[in-house]
Design a protein around this nucleic acid. Structure first.
Lengths: 336, 336
DNA sequence: CTGTTAGCGCCTTCAG
DNA sequence: CTGAAGGCGCTAACAG
C-alpha cells in the first residue's frame, strides 16, 4: 500500500520544480532537452503516472470518452463492445459508468451521471437508453436508443418500427391471430415504436386490436413475469406473444414453463434485440436482431466527429434490423 | 452547452456560503434544518450535482468501484455483467476503464490505469487479466485471472488446469491421437495451466508430446490465425485442436474454413471460456465453460469485503469449469 | 449554526 | 529556460 508518487515526488527526486516536471511529462515547450530527459528518467524509476482526476480538473480535457449506462446488462454490454472496437484505433480511453440506482429517483441516473462526470473526467459521452437528458451540458453527447419526445441530441438507434412489423408479420404468416404484446419502458422511443409496429401489422392483416392482449414489461426479465402471467392466464389466451425485447421474452419463456405451456407447440414467442442470451435459452429464441455492436461503434464514431469540431446537431442515424428464426415460433396448434 | 452549475452557483443563489451547501448536500451535522431545506431546494432548481472529480480529490473516497480492463472484449464484458449484478444491491457505483493501448508499452495498461485512477476516483479496483501489477497501491485490488508468478493480490480465477484436462480427455475419448494445442498469452497463469492440463492428459493417455503441435495464439482471434494455419498446414496435421480460449478457437474455425477443412468431420475444435460468441459461430463451438459472470460477482464481493476492512490478503478463489458439448467435436475421420 | 481558510494534485500564467 | 503563485470544484478543519 505504498503511496502513489505525485508530481511533487518526482520534482523532489529530480531536483527540479513541479512545473518543470509537468512540462516534461506533457511535452511542452520551455524546457531544456537534457533536463527533460533527466526528469523522464526519474518518472520512469518512480513509476509516476499523472492523476487523471487532478489533471482533468485543471485542464478540462482528458482524452477519455464516457459511456453512461443505467446498468451493465446484456444490451449495454454489447454496446460497450462496439464502442470499444471503434475506439481501439483512436487516441481516446474509454470509461463506462453506471451510477447507483439508489439515488433519489427525482433526477434520473442520466442527468446525475452526466453531471458528475462532465466538465471534467470525460470529453464526450455516449448515453445508452437515456430518458430525461436535455442538451444543456458542456460536452458533446450522443444518445443510443433514446427517450420519446423531441430529439435534441444526436441519436443512433435501430429500426424499431420496421423490426416490430417484421416480428408481428412473422407470427401472422405462421397463422397466428391472437397475438399478445409485452411492451417495454414507455418512456423510450423504441418501446412505443415497437408497439406501433405491432399494431400496424395487425391492422394490415385485418386483425382487430385487443387491448387485453397488451401488457408492459419494462424491458426486464423480472418485471416481465407478472404481465406475462396475466397474458397467459387469460380465458382465451394468445397463441403467440411478441415481447419488446429479449429479456422480456425470456420472462415469457420462464412463465410458460411454469404454467406447463409448451413453446413453441402451444405458444410462439418472439423477442427483440438478439442479445447473446437469446441463443442460450431453451428453446433458442426467435427474435429481431438489432446490430448492437454497430450501434455502439456508430455512436463512438459520431462522437469523435463531434469532438473534432464537426457540428451535426440534428444527426439521427437509424440502423436496420432483421428476423432471426430459431425455435420459439411455430404455427398455432390446431383447435382442440 | 450551458455551464454545469457548481457549488458556488448554488451558494450564491441560496445566499449562503459554499461550505453550507457542501454540508447540506452531504447531510453533515452543523447546519440548521430550514437552512438545509432551502439549500436543497436551490440545488434541485439548478440541477446541481457534485463533481465526482472534485469531491473525490478532496475526500479521497468516492463510493465507486473500478473495473480495469485491457479492452472491452467478450470475456471482460461477461465479467462486467457479473460485477454489475453483485454491485446492484450495494451502495457502490461501477466504473469500467480501458486505457488506450497506444501508451508506451513499457509500463502495461494495468499499472497506468490503476495509477491514474487510484488514490482518487475509485475506492477499490478489480483488474481483469493483469500481468505486471504489484500490490503497491493505495487501494484494495482484486485480480481476475492474473499473471504467472507469485500472487501478491487476492485472486479469483477458474480451474484452468482441470478444464484443460477435461477438454483434452474429451478429444482423446473421441479417439483423437494427434491433438494440437493453440496456447494463450504466456504471461497469464491461466494460459500456462491450460497447456499443463493438455500435456498431462496426453501423458495420462500414453500419447507422446509433440512440440510441433503446439503454437501460441495470444487469446485473440486475429493473432490465432497464423499459428492455426501453421498447425493445419503440417504434413501430418492434427485431427483435433484444443484452443486455449474461444476467441482462438474461432480463429481456428476461420482458417479451417479457408483451407477447406470440414469441422468436425476432418477436424475437431475445442475452445475454452464459453463466451456468448461461442454459440453464435457455425458450427457452434464445443468448449469448456468457465463461469465468467460469477468470477466478476465473486471478485466484487471480495472487494467489498476488503473495503469493509476485512484483511484477506492471501485469498485465492477458484471456480469450477465444465465441458459444454456442441458441434465442433467428433471422432476422427477413418484413415483414407 | 455559520462562514472563512486551507489545501487535494495538477497545469498554466507570469516573473525571474 | 526555469520556478513560484494561483486556481480547477470541493470538503474538512477551524474560527466566529
Amino acid at each position: 500500500m505504498a503511496r502513489r508518487p505525485t508530481i511533487h515526488d518526482v520534482a523532489a527526486a529530480a531536483g527540479v520544480s513541479v512545473s518543470a516536471v509537468s512540462k516534461a511529462v506533457n511535452g511542452r515547450y520551455g524546457i531544456a532537452a537534457d533536463t527533460s530527459a533527466r526528469i523522464l528518467q526519474v518518472v520512469k524509476e518512480l513509476g509516476y503516472e499523472s492523476s487523471l482526476v487532478a489533471s482533468s480538473m485543471r485542464s478540462h480535457r482528458t482524452g477519455v470518452i464516457g459511456v453512461l449506462v443505467a446498468d451493465f446488462e446484456p444490451f449495454s454490454a454489447e454496446i460497450l463492445k462496439g464502442v470499444g472496437s471503434a475506439l481501439r484505433e483512436s487516441r481516446y480511453d474509454l470509461l463506462a459508468y453506471s451510477g447507483s440506482r439508489h439515488a433519489d429517483g427525482a433526477t434520473g441516473w442520466e442527468r446525475r451521471s452526466l453531471s458528475r462526470l462532465s466538465g471534467t473526467l470525460i470529453d464526450g459521452a455516449i448515453m445508452v437508453t437515456p430518458t430525461v437528458v436535455t442538451a444543456s451540458v458542456e460536452i458533446p453527447v450522443v444518445a443510443i436508443d433514446p427517450h420519446t419526445g423531441r430529439a435534441d441530441l444526436p441519436t443512433v438507434e435501430s429500426d424499431s418500427l420496421g423490426g416490430a412489423l417484421q416480428a408481428t408479420r412473422h407470427l401472422i404468416d405462421l397463422g397466428h391471430r391472437r397475438i399478445g404484446f409485452l411492451g417495454g419502458r414507455p418512456d423510450l422511443r423504441s418501446a412505443s415504436l415497437r408497439e406501433a409496429g405491432y399494431r400496424r401489422a395487425l391492422t394490415d392483416a385485418g386483425i382487430p386490436f385487443d387491448p387485453q392482449l397488451v401488457q408492459v414489461g419494462m424491458f426486464l426479465t423480472a418485471s416481465s413475469r407478472e404481465p406475462a402471467r396475466a397474458l397467459l392466464s387469460l380465458p382465451n389466451r394468445p397463441t403467440a406473444i411478441f415481447a419488446a425485447n429479449d429479456l422480456s421474452a425470456i420472462g415469457v419463456l420462464q412463465v410458460a414453463g411454469e404454467l406447463g405451456i409448451d413453446v413453441p407447440r402451444d405458444l410462439s414467442v418472439m423477442g427483440f434485440d438478439d442479445i447473446p442470451e437469446a441463443i442460450q435459452v431453451s428453446p433458442p429464441l426467435t427474435t429481431i436482431r438489432q446490430p448492437m455492436q454497430r450501434l455502439g461503434a456508430t455512436a463512438a464514431e459520431s462522437l469523435i466527429a463531434l469532438l473534432s469540431g464537426e457540428t451535426s446537431d440534428a444527426m439521427r442515424i437509424q440502423l436496420p434490423t432483421r428476423l432471426v428464426r430459431r425455435a420459439t415460433t411455430a404455427p398455432p396448434a390446431p383447435p382442440a
